[in-house]
Nucleic acid binder design. Structure first.
Length: 458
RNA sequence: GUAGUUGUAGCUCAGUUGGUUAGAGCAUCAGAUUGUGGUUCUGAGGGUCGUGGGUUCGAGCCCCAUCAUCUACCCCA
Protein backbone atom coordinates (compact mmCIF):
# COMPACT_ATOMS: atom_id res chain seq x y z
CA UNK A 1 0.00 0.00 0.00
CA UNK A 2 1.31 3.42 -0.93
CA UNK A 3 2.13 5.69 1.97
CA UNK A 4 0.12 8.90 2.04
CA UNK A 5 0.31 11.87 4.33
CA UNK A 6 -2.45 11.80 6.91
CA UNK A 7 -4.98 14.49 6.17
CA UNK A 8 -8.61 15.46 6.50
CA UNK A 9 -11.05 16.64 3.84
CA UNK A 10 -11.44 20.39 3.76
CA UNK A 11 -13.84 21.78 6.32
CA UNK A 12 -14.02 18.64 8.45
CA UNK A 13 -12.53 18.07 11.88
CA UNK A 14 -11.55 15.35 14.31
CA UNK A 15 -12.81 15.85 17.83
CA UNK A 16 -10.45 14.82 20.60
CA UNK A 17 -11.67 13.49 23.97
CA UNK A 18 -12.03 16.90 25.64
CA UNK A 19 -13.85 18.38 22.67
CA UNK A 20 -16.23 15.45 22.43
CA UNK A 21 -17.06 15.76 26.11
CA UNK A 22 -17.84 19.43 25.72
CA UNK A 23 -19.93 18.79 22.61
CA UNK A 24 -21.84 16.03 24.39
CA UNK A 25 -22.57 18.46 27.15
CA UNK A 26 -24.20 20.84 24.66
CA UNK A 27 -26.11 18.01 22.99
CA UNK A 28 -27.37 16.71 26.29
CA UNK A 29 -28.67 20.09 27.42
CA UNK A 30 -30.49 20.58 24.14
CA UNK A 31 -31.94 17.06 24.10
CA UNK A 32 -33.05 17.39 27.69
CA UNK A 33 -35.00 20.57 26.97
CA UNK A 34 -36.51 19.09 23.80
CA UNK A 35 -37.72 16.14 25.84
CA UNK A 36 -39.06 18.45 28.54
CA UNK A 37 -41.38 19.95 25.97
CA UNK A 38 -42.57 16.58 24.73
CA UNK A 39 -40.57 16.26 21.53
CA UNK A 40 -39.67 12.80 20.26
CA UNK A 41 -36.41 11.74 18.64
CA UNK A 42 -36.02 10.93 14.95
CA UNK A 43 -33.04 9.91 12.86
CA UNK A 44 -32.81 9.83 9.08
CA UNK A 45 -30.05 8.55 6.78
CA UNK A 46 -26.93 10.57 6.03
CA UNK A 47 -27.81 10.37 2.36
CA UNK A 48 -31.02 11.15 0.54
CA UNK A 49 -32.07 10.73 -3.03
CA UNK A 50 -30.84 13.75 -4.93
CA UNK A 51 -34.39 14.52 -6.12
CA UNK A 52 -35.49 14.90 -2.53
CA UNK A 53 -33.00 17.68 -1.91
CA UNK A 54 -32.71 19.53 -5.22
CA UNK A 55 -34.62 22.76 -5.56
CA UNK A 56 -35.41 23.11 -1.86
CA UNK A 57 -32.64 25.48 -0.86
CA UNK A 58 -32.58 27.92 -3.74
CA UNK A 59 -30.11 28.12 -6.57
CA UNK A 60 -27.14 28.76 -4.30
CA UNK A 61 -28.15 25.99 -1.96
CA UNK A 62 -28.33 23.46 -4.75
CA UNK A 63 -24.71 24.17 -5.61
CA UNK A 64 -23.67 23.41 -2.05
CA UNK A 65 -25.19 19.93 -1.92
CA UNK A 66 -22.58 17.18 -1.74
CA UNK A 67 -23.45 14.71 -4.46
CA UNK A 68 -22.45 11.07 -4.36
CA UNK A 69 -21.04 9.45 -7.46
CA UNK A 70 -22.93 6.35 -8.51
CA UNK A 71 -21.20 3.00 -8.26
CA UNK A 72 -20.66 0.74 -11.20
CA UNK A 73 -20.09 3.46 -13.78
CA UNK A 74 -17.35 1.41 -15.42
CA UNK A 75 -19.73 -1.44 -16.08
CA UNK A 76 -19.71 -1.80 -19.90
CA UNK A 77 -23.51 -1.75 -19.85
CA UNK A 78 -23.59 1.71 -18.25
CA UNK A 79 -20.58 3.29 -19.84
CA UNK A 80 -22.29 5.09 -22.70
CA UNK A 81 -25.02 6.39 -20.43
CA UNK A 82 -22.40 7.62 -17.98
CA UNK A 83 -20.55 9.48 -20.75
CA UNK A 84 -23.72 11.25 -21.81
CA UNK A 85 -24.54 12.02 -18.21
CA UNK A 86 -21.09 13.47 -17.67
CA UNK A 87 -21.66 15.84 -20.57
CA UNK A 88 -24.84 16.99 -18.86
CA UNK A 89 -23.02 17.56 -15.60
CA UNK A 90 -20.40 19.66 -17.37
CA UNK A 91 -23.25 21.85 -18.54
CA UNK A 92 -24.25 22.36 -14.95
CA UNK A 93 -27.16 19.94 -14.89
CA UNK A 94 -27.65 16.86 -12.77
CA UNK A 95 -28.05 13.42 -14.21
CA UNK A 96 -29.23 10.39 -12.29
CA UNK A 97 -27.06 8.17 -14.47
CA UNK A 98 -24.05 9.73 -12.74
CA UNK A 99 -25.35 10.71 -9.34
CA UNK A 100 -28.65 9.90 -7.73
CA UNK A 101 -27.83 10.31 -4.05
CA UNK A 102 -26.54 13.19 -1.97
CA UNK A 103 -25.54 13.94 1.61
CA UNK A 104 -28.27 15.70 3.55
CA UNK A 105 -27.99 19.47 3.58
CA UNK A 106 -30.23 20.09 6.58
CA UNK A 107 -32.62 18.19 8.80
CA UNK A 108 -35.84 19.91 7.82
CA UNK A 109 -36.26 18.53 4.31
CA UNK A 110 -35.49 14.94 5.33
CA UNK A 111 -38.04 15.41 8.11
CA UNK A 112 -40.61 16.67 5.61
CA UNK A 113 -39.86 13.64 3.46
CA UNK A 114 -40.33 11.40 6.48
CA UNK A 115 -43.65 13.01 7.35
CA UNK A 116 -44.87 12.67 3.77
CA UNK A 117 -43.94 8.98 3.76
CA UNK A 118 -45.40 8.19 7.19
CA UNK A 119 -48.26 10.59 7.71
CA UNK A 120 -50.69 7.70 7.92
CA UNK A 121 -49.01 6.40 11.06
CA UNK A 122 -48.19 9.69 12.73
CA UNK A 123 -50.22 11.15 15.55
CA UNK A 124 -50.62 14.81 14.72
CA UNK A 125 -49.35 17.17 15.76
CA UNK A 126 -46.04 15.36 15.49
CA UNK A 127 -43.32 16.92 17.58
CA UNK A 128 -39.92 15.60 16.68
CA UNK A 129 -36.35 16.51 17.44
CA UNK A 130 -33.33 15.43 15.47
CA UNK A 131 -29.62 15.74 16.26
CA UNK A 132 -27.45 14.73 13.34
CA UNK A 133 -24.67 16.04 11.12
CA UNK A 134 -25.35 17.79 7.84
CA UNK A 135 -22.96 18.53 4.98
CA UNK A 136 -22.51 21.59 2.81
CA UNK A 137 -19.89 22.19 0.14
CA UNK A 138 -19.33 25.73 1.38
CA UNK A 139 -15.91 27.38 1.64
CA UNK A 140 -14.93 26.91 5.28
CA UNK A 141 -14.26 30.00 7.41
CA UNK A 142 -14.90 31.25 10.91
CA UNK A 143 -17.97 29.46 12.29
CA UNK A 144 -18.51 27.60 9.04
CA UNK A 145 -17.67 23.98 8.41
CA UNK A 146 -18.46 21.47 5.70
CA UNK A 147 -19.67 18.92 8.21
CA UNK A 148 -21.60 20.26 11.18
CA UNK A 149 -24.38 19.23 13.52
CA UNK A 150 -27.84 20.64 13.64
CA UNK A 151 -30.29 20.09 16.46
CA UNK A 152 -33.78 20.64 15.16
CA UNK A 153 -37.15 20.60 16.85
CA UNK A 154 -40.20 20.86 14.63
CA UNK A 155 -43.93 20.56 15.12
CA UNK A 156 -45.90 19.43 12.14
CA UNK A 157 -49.68 19.44 11.80
CA UNK A 158 -50.64 22.37 13.99
CA UNK A 159 -51.44 26.02 13.29
CA UNK A 160 -51.45 26.92 16.97
CA UNK A 161 -49.20 29.76 18.07
CA UNK A 162 -48.58 27.81 21.24
CA UNK A 163 -45.94 26.00 19.21
CA UNK A 164 -44.12 29.23 18.38
CA UNK A 165 -44.31 30.23 22.00
CA UNK A 166 -42.88 26.97 23.26
CA UNK A 167 -40.13 26.90 20.66
CA UNK A 168 -39.16 30.43 21.64
CA UNK A 169 -39.00 29.31 25.26
CA UNK A 170 -36.90 26.31 24.29
CA UNK A 171 -34.35 28.67 22.79
CA UNK A 172 -34.33 30.79 25.92
CA UNK A 173 -34.12 27.80 28.25
CA UNK A 174 -31.29 26.06 26.43
CA UNK A 175 -29.09 29.13 26.24
CA UNK A 176 -29.81 29.99 29.85
CA UNK A 177 -28.73 26.50 30.86
CA UNK A 178 -25.60 26.76 28.76
CA UNK A 179 -24.81 30.14 30.26
CA UNK A 180 -24.71 32.05 26.98
CA UNK A 181 -26.23 35.52 26.89
CA UNK A 182 -28.34 35.70 23.76
CA UNK A 183 -30.96 37.70 22.03
CA UNK A 184 -33.76 35.71 20.44
CA UNK A 185 -34.97 37.80 17.53
CA UNK A 186 -38.46 37.47 16.15
CA UNK A 187 -40.13 38.72 13.04
CA UNK A 188 -42.96 37.60 10.82
CA UNK A 189 -42.81 36.90 7.13
CA UNK A 190 -46.31 38.28 6.89
CA UNK A 191 -44.98 41.69 7.89
CA UNK A 192 -42.35 41.47 5.19
CA UNK A 193 -45.06 40.47 2.74
CA UNK A 194 -47.15 43.45 3.80
CA UNK A 195 -44.18 45.75 3.33
CA UNK A 196 -43.68 44.32 -0.15
CA UNK A 197 -47.31 44.93 -0.98
CA UNK A 198 -46.86 48.55 -0.01
CA UNK A 199 -43.64 48.84 -1.98
CA UNK A 200 -43.86 47.54 -5.48
CA UNK A 201 -45.90 44.42 -5.04
CA UNK A 202 -45.51 40.86 -3.89
CA UNK A 203 -43.08 39.96 -6.66
CA UNK A 204 -40.51 42.20 -4.98
CA UNK A 205 -40.67 40.34 -1.69
CA UNK A 206 -37.55 38.25 -2.27
CA UNK A 207 -35.55 41.25 -3.46
CA UNK A 208 -36.68 43.31 -0.50
CA UNK A 209 -36.02 40.63 2.11
CA UNK A 210 -32.60 39.85 0.69
CA UNK A 211 -31.68 43.54 0.73
CA UNK A 212 -32.87 44.33 4.25
CA UNK A 213 -31.34 41.17 5.62
CA UNK A 214 -27.98 42.75 4.84
CA UNK A 215 -28.72 45.93 6.78
CA UNK A 216 -26.39 45.42 9.71
CA UNK A 217 -23.63 44.30 7.39
CA UNK A 218 -23.64 46.89 4.62
CA UNK A 219 -25.59 49.79 6.13
CA UNK A 220 -28.70 51.66 5.16
CA UNK A 221 -27.21 53.50 2.17
CA UNK A 222 -26.07 50.33 0.44
CA UNK A 223 -29.43 48.73 1.08
CA UNK A 224 -31.15 51.69 -0.55
CA UNK A 225 -28.78 51.41 -3.52
CA UNK A 226 -29.56 47.75 -3.90
CA UNK A 227 -33.31 48.40 -3.76
CA UNK A 228 -32.95 51.09 -6.40
CA UNK A 229 -31.18 48.63 -8.66
CA UNK A 230 -34.04 46.21 -8.17
CA UNK A 231 -36.39 48.82 -9.62
CA UNK A 232 -38.06 50.36 -6.59
CA UNK A 233 -38.94 54.04 -6.78
CA UNK A 234 -37.94 56.74 -4.30
CA UNK A 235 -41.25 56.75 -2.42
CA UNK A 236 -41.09 52.99 -1.93
CA UNK A 237 -37.49 53.14 -0.78
CA UNK A 238 -38.42 55.90 1.65
CA UNK A 239 -41.09 53.66 3.14
CA UNK A 240 -38.62 50.83 3.54
CA UNK A 241 -36.15 53.18 5.16
CA UNK A 242 -38.80 54.24 7.68
CA UNK A 243 -39.50 50.55 8.27
CA UNK A 244 -35.86 49.79 8.91
CA UNK A 245 -35.41 52.72 11.25
CA UNK A 246 -38.05 51.54 13.69
CA UNK A 247 -36.49 51.26 17.15
CA UNK A 248 -37.45 51.10 20.79
CA UNK A 249 -39.04 48.51 23.01
CA UNK A 250 -41.04 45.69 21.48
CA UNK A 251 -44.28 47.58 22.20
CA UNK A 252 -42.91 50.78 20.69
CA UNK A 253 -41.80 48.92 17.59
CA UNK A 254 -45.24 47.40 17.10
CA UNK A 255 -46.83 50.81 17.50
CA UNK A 256 -44.54 52.37 14.91
CA UNK A 257 -45.13 49.51 12.52
CA UNK A 258 -48.88 49.80 12.85
CA UNK A 259 -48.62 53.42 11.83
CA UNK A 260 -46.47 52.51 8.84
CA UNK A 261 -48.43 49.56 7.49
CA UNK A 262 -51.87 51.04 8.14
CA UNK A 263 -54.72 48.72 7.39
CA UNK A 264 -52.85 46.10 5.45
CA UNK A 265 -54.57 42.83 6.35
CA UNK A 266 -51.52 40.60 6.08
CA UNK A 267 -49.44 43.00 8.12
CA UNK A 268 -52.04 43.18 10.87
CA UNK A 269 -52.18 39.43 11.05
CA UNK A 270 -48.42 39.21 11.32
CA UNK A 271 -48.32 41.71 14.13
CA UNK A 272 -51.17 40.00 15.96
CA UNK A 273 -49.26 36.71 15.85
CA UNK A 274 -46.14 38.31 17.25
CA UNK A 275 -48.15 40.01 19.97
CA UNK A 276 -49.69 36.70 20.98
CA UNK A 277 -46.31 35.03 21.33
CA UNK A 278 -44.68 37.97 23.10
CA UNK A 279 -47.55 38.22 25.54
CA UNK A 280 -47.28 34.53 26.30
CA UNK A 281 -43.57 34.69 27.06
CA UNK A 282 -43.73 37.99 28.90
CA UNK A 283 -44.71 36.34 32.17
CA UNK A 284 -41.73 33.99 32.15
CA UNK A 285 -38.31 34.63 33.59
CA UNK A 286 -36.95 34.66 30.05
CA UNK A 287 -39.02 37.61 28.82
CA UNK A 288 -36.01 39.88 28.43
CA UNK A 289 -34.21 37.83 25.76
CA UNK A 290 -36.95 38.19 23.16
CA UNK A 291 -36.56 41.06 20.79
CA UNK A 292 -38.61 42.09 17.80
CA UNK A 293 -36.37 42.71 14.83
CA UNK A 294 -38.15 43.75 11.68
CA UNK A 295 -34.92 43.59 9.72
CA UNK A 296 -34.74 39.86 10.31
CA UNK A 297 -35.58 38.11 7.05
CA UNK A 298 -33.93 34.66 6.88
CA UNK A 299 -32.88 33.24 3.60
CA UNK A 300 -34.96 30.14 3.27
CA UNK A 301 -38.00 30.96 1.21
CA UNK A 302 -40.31 28.36 2.65
CA UNK A 303 -41.01 30.38 5.79
CA UNK A 304 -44.48 31.96 5.85
CA UNK A 305 -45.11 33.10 9.43
CA UNK A 306 -43.09 33.94 12.51
CA UNK A 307 -39.34 33.56 12.07
CA UNK A 308 -36.60 33.26 14.70
CA UNK A 309 -32.93 33.88 14.87
CA UNK A 310 -30.58 33.67 17.83
CA UNK A 311 -27.49 35.81 18.20
CA UNK A 312 -24.98 35.45 20.99
CA UNK A 313 -24.11 38.64 22.80
CA UNK A 314 -20.53 39.72 23.51
CA UNK A 315 -19.04 37.68 20.69
CA UNK A 316 -18.55 38.04 16.97
CA UNK A 317 -20.32 35.07 15.42
CA UNK A 318 -23.05 34.43 12.89
CA UNK A 319 -26.41 33.24 14.11
CA UNK A 320 -26.33 30.21 16.39
CA UNK A 321 -29.91 29.21 15.77
CA UNK A 322 -32.82 29.95 13.51
CA UNK A 323 -36.21 28.76 12.44
CA UNK A 324 -39.76 29.68 11.72
CA UNK A 325 -43.16 28.64 10.45
CA UNK A 326 -43.69 27.11 7.05
CA UNK A 327 -47.21 26.41 5.92
CA UNK A 328 -46.62 23.91 3.20
CA UNK A 329 -43.37 22.06 3.51
CA UNK A 330 -44.57 18.60 2.58
CA UNK A 331 -46.46 19.80 -0.49
CA UNK A 332 -43.59 18.93 -2.81
CA UNK A 333 -43.72 15.38 -1.46
CA UNK A 334 -47.41 15.01 -2.30
CA UNK A 335 -48.84 15.89 1.09
CA UNK A 336 -50.47 19.33 0.88
CA UNK A 337 -51.85 21.51 3.67
CA UNK A 338 -49.53 20.30 6.37
CA UNK A 339 -48.25 23.23 8.42
CA UNK A 340 -45.10 23.15 10.43
CA UNK A 341 -42.92 25.27 12.63
CA UNK A 342 -39.42 24.52 13.81
CA UNK A 343 -36.15 25.74 15.21
CA UNK A 344 -32.55 24.71 14.81
CA UNK A 345 -29.46 24.95 16.99
CA UNK A 346 -26.01 25.21 15.40
CA UNK A 347 -23.94 23.17 17.84
CA UNK A 348 -20.60 23.84 16.22
CA UNK A 349 -21.05 27.59 16.49
CA UNK A 350 -22.45 27.26 20.00
CA UNK A 351 -19.29 25.35 20.87
CA UNK A 352 -17.08 28.08 19.43
CA UNK A 353 -19.01 30.74 21.32
CA UNK A 354 -18.80 28.82 24.60
CA UNK A 355 -15.10 28.22 24.14
CA UNK A 356 -14.55 31.92 23.52
CA UNK A 357 -16.66 33.03 26.48
CA UNK A 358 -15.40 30.15 28.65
CA UNK A 359 -18.87 28.92 29.50
CA UNK A 360 -18.03 25.26 29.93
CA UNK A 361 -18.28 24.01 33.51
CA UNK A 362 -15.00 22.57 34.74
CA UNK A 363 -16.64 19.23 35.52
CA UNK A 364 -17.37 18.62 31.84
CA UNK A 365 -13.99 17.01 31.41
CA UNK A 366 -14.09 14.48 34.21
CA UNK A 367 -14.33 10.98 32.91
CA UNK A 368 -12.98 8.61 35.53
CA UNK A 369 -13.56 9.86 39.08
CA UNK A 370 -10.56 8.14 40.58
CA UNK A 371 -7.33 6.43 39.69
CA UNK A 372 -5.52 3.75 41.68
CA UNK A 373 -1.78 4.20 41.75
CA UNK A 374 0.13 1.13 40.77
CA UNK A 375 2.74 0.57 43.47
CA UNK A 376 3.73 -3.04 43.00
CA UNK A 377 2.53 -6.51 42.17
CA UNK A 378 0.53 -7.32 45.30
CA UNK A 379 -0.62 -3.74 45.78
CA UNK A 380 -2.02 -3.50 42.28
CA UNK A 381 -3.79 -6.82 42.58
CA UNK A 382 -5.70 -5.50 45.57
CA UNK A 383 -6.31 -2.22 43.77
CA UNK A 384 -7.67 -4.15 40.82
CA UNK A 385 -10.21 -5.85 43.04
CA UNK A 386 -11.21 -2.57 44.65
CA UNK A 387 -11.58 -0.94 41.22
CA UNK A 388 -14.07 -3.61 40.26
CA UNK A 389 -16.03 -2.88 43.43
CA UNK A 390 -16.18 0.82 42.59
CA UNK A 391 -17.36 0.06 39.09
CA UNK A 392 -20.11 -2.13 40.53
CA UNK A 393 -21.28 1.05 42.24
CA UNK A 394 -21.08 2.98 38.96
CA UNK A 395 -18.03 4.92 40.00
CA UNK A 396 -15.79 5.32 36.96
CA UNK A 397 -12.19 4.61 37.85
CA UNK A 398 -9.00 3.16 36.53
CA UNK A 399 -5.84 1.47 37.69
CA UNK A 400 -2.55 2.84 36.41
CA UNK A 401 -1.34 0.33 33.85
CA UNK A 402 2.08 -0.39 35.31
CA UNK A 403 4.23 0.31 38.28
CA UNK A 404 5.82 3.70 37.92
CA UNK A 405 7.12 6.66 39.85
CA UNK A 406 4.58 8.75 41.75
CA UNK A 407 5.50 11.69 39.64
CA UNK A 408 4.45 9.97 36.47
CA UNK A 409 1.21 8.63 37.85
CA UNK A 410 0.25 12.03 39.26
CA UNK A 411 0.86 13.66 35.93
CA UNK A 412 -1.26 11.09 34.18
CA UNK A 413 -4.13 11.72 36.61
CA UNK A 414 -3.82 15.42 36.14
CA UNK A 415 -3.82 15.27 32.37
CA UNK A 416 -6.94 13.16 32.37
CA UNK A 417 -8.67 15.48 34.83
CA UNK A 418 -9.21 12.65 37.29
CA UNK A 419 -10.21 14.32 40.57
CA UNK A 420 -9.17 11.60 43.05
CA UNK A 421 -6.04 9.54 43.44
CA UNK A 422 -6.18 6.35 45.51
CA UNK A 423 -2.84 5.32 46.93
CA UNK A 424 -2.50 1.72 47.99
CA UNK A 425 1.09 0.86 48.88
CA UNK A 426 2.75 -1.67 51.13
CA UNK A 427 1.66 0.12 54.32
CA UNK A 428 -1.97 0.36 53.23
CA UNK A 429 -1.90 -3.20 51.99
CA UNK A 430 -0.91 -4.34 55.44
CA UNK A 431 -3.49 -2.21 57.23
CA UNK A 432 -6.31 -2.91 54.75
CA UNK A 433 -6.68 0.80 54.09
CA UNK A 434 -5.99 3.17 51.28
CA UNK A 435 -5.25 6.83 50.97
CA UNK A 436 -7.74 8.90 49.00
CA UNK A 437 -6.32 12.17 47.78
CA UNK A 438 -8.28 15.02 46.27
CA UNK A 439 -6.01 16.43 43.60
CA UNK A 440 -7.62 19.84 43.44
CA UNK A 441 -7.47 20.59 47.16
CA UNK A 442 -4.52 18.40 48.09
CA UNK A 443 -6.50 16.96 51.02
CA UNK A 444 -6.06 13.28 51.68
CA UNK A 445 -7.61 10.84 54.09
CA UNK A 446 -7.19 7.22 55.05
CA UNK A 447 -10.17 5.06 54.17
CA UNK A 448 -10.74 1.41 55.06
CA UNK A 449 -10.70 -0.73 51.93
CA UNK A 450 -14.08 -2.15 52.89
CA UNK A 451 -15.54 1.36 52.96
CA UNK A 452 -13.99 2.65 49.74
CA UNK A 453 -17.01 1.90 47.58
CA UNK A 454 -19.10 4.12 49.84
CA UNK A 455 -16.69 7.04 49.65
CA UNK A 456 -18.19 10.13 48.10
CA UNK A 457 -16.18 10.83 44.93
CA UNK A 458 -18.18 13.97 44.17
C1' G B 1 -17.50 30.55 -7.47
C1' U B 2 -14.26 35.45 -6.27
C1' A B 3 -10.24 37.85 -3.37
C1' G B 4 -6.46 37.88 0.15
C1' U B 5 -3.38 35.45 4.33
C1' U B 6 -0.18 31.87 6.06
C1' G B 7 2.89 27.27 5.42
C1' U B 8 10.05 26.33 9.47
C1' A B 9 10.53 20.46 15.42
C1' G B 10 4.60 16.89 18.07
C1' C B 11 2.34 22.28 19.33
C1' U B 12 3.01 27.92 19.26
C1' C B 13 6.30 30.72 16.69
C1' A B 14 11.57 33.53 15.81
C1' G B 15 14.93 33.47 11.69
C1' U B 16 18.03 40.70 9.80
C1' U B 17 19.94 43.48 2.98
C1' G B 18 20.13 36.01 0.23
C1' G B 19 26.06 33.95 3.27
C1' U B 20 29.25 28.54 7.71
C1' U B 21 26.42 23.29 11.20
C1' A B 22 18.30 26.57 10.96
C1' G B 23 16.79 28.59 16.72
C1' A B 24 13.39 29.49 21.25
C1' G B 25 9.27 28.28 24.46
C1' C B 26 5.91 24.44 25.49
C1' A B 27 5.38 19.11 25.06
C1' U B 28 8.03 14.16 25.17
C1' C B 29 11.89 10.97 27.29
C1' A B 30 15.96 10.29 30.93
C1' G B 31 18.36 11.94 35.44
C1' A B 32 18.78 15.10 40.20
C1' U B 33 14.52 12.41 43.70
C1' U B 34 13.27 4.21 46.12
C1' G B 35 5.80 6.92 49.26
C1' U B 36 3.20 12.47 47.55
C1' G B 37 2.19 15.75 41.56
C1' G B 38 1.35 20.89 39.52
C1' U B 39 7.81 24.58 41.28
C1' U B 40 13.08 24.09 40.02
C1' C B 41 17.74 22.25 37.75
C1' U B 42 20.64 19.08 34.14
C1' G B 43 20.68 16.33 29.72
C1' A B 44 18.63 13.88 25.30
C1' G B 45 15.73 12.80 21.06
C1' G B 46 13.10 15.25 17.28
C1' G B 47 13.45 19.46 10.98
C1' U B 48 15.16 16.81 3.24
C1' C B 49 12.12 24.86 6.14
C1' G B 50 4.36 22.23 2.42
C1' U B 51 5.67 20.13 -2.65
C1' G B 52 7.91 20.78 -7.67
C1' G B 53 10.62 23.85 -10.74
C1' G B 54 13.63 28.44 -11.57
C1' U B 55 17.26 32.71 -10.52
C1' U B 56 22.20 32.69 -7.95
C1' C B 57 28.94 30.99 -6.59
C1' G B 58 25.26 30.34 -2.61
C1' A B 59 17.93 30.16 -1.22
C1' G B 60 14.10 29.07 4.91
C1' C B 61 14.42 34.22 2.62
C1' C B 62 13.78 36.22 -4.38
C1' C B 63 10.54 34.38 -8.91
C1' C B 64 6.86 30.79 -11.08
C1' A B 65 3.66 26.74 -10.45
C1' U B 66 1.10 23.47 -7.26
C1' C B 67 -1.13 21.67 -2.75
C1' A B 68 -2.85 22.79 2.03
C1' U B 69 -4.54 26.48 5.62
C1' C B 70 -7.01 30.49 7.63
C1' U B 71 -9.88 34.95 6.58
C1' A B 72 -13.36 37.98 3.82
C1' C B 73 -17.20 38.23 -0.10
C1' C B 74 -21.49 35.26 -1.89
C1' C B 75 -24.55 32.37 1.07
C1' C B 76 -25.47 30.40 5.66
C1' A B 77 -25.73 27.21 11.27
Amino acid sequence: MAKITASLPQGTRDFGPETVRKRHYIFSVIRQVFELYGFQPLETPAMENLDTLMGKYGEEGDKLIFKILNNGLNNPRNIEKARAAFAHVLEGRNDSALTERALRYDLTIPFARYVAMNHGQLTLPFKRYQVQPVWRADRPQRGRYREFYQCDADVVGSYSLLNETELALIYATVFAKLGIAVSVKLNNRKILAALSELCGGAEFMTAITVAIDKLDKIGIEKVKEELQQKGLNDAQIATIEKYLCITGSNAQKLEALTALLGNNVTGKKGMAELTTVLDAVSNTSYAAVFELDFTLARGLNYYTGIIFEVKAKNVQMGSIGGGGRYDDLTGTFGLPNTPGVGISFGVDRIYDVMEELQCFPAAVNTGAKAIFFNLGEKESQRAFTLALELREKNIACELYHEQAKFDKQFKYAEKKHIPYVIILGSRELEENTCLVKNLASGDQQTVAQSALADFNFA
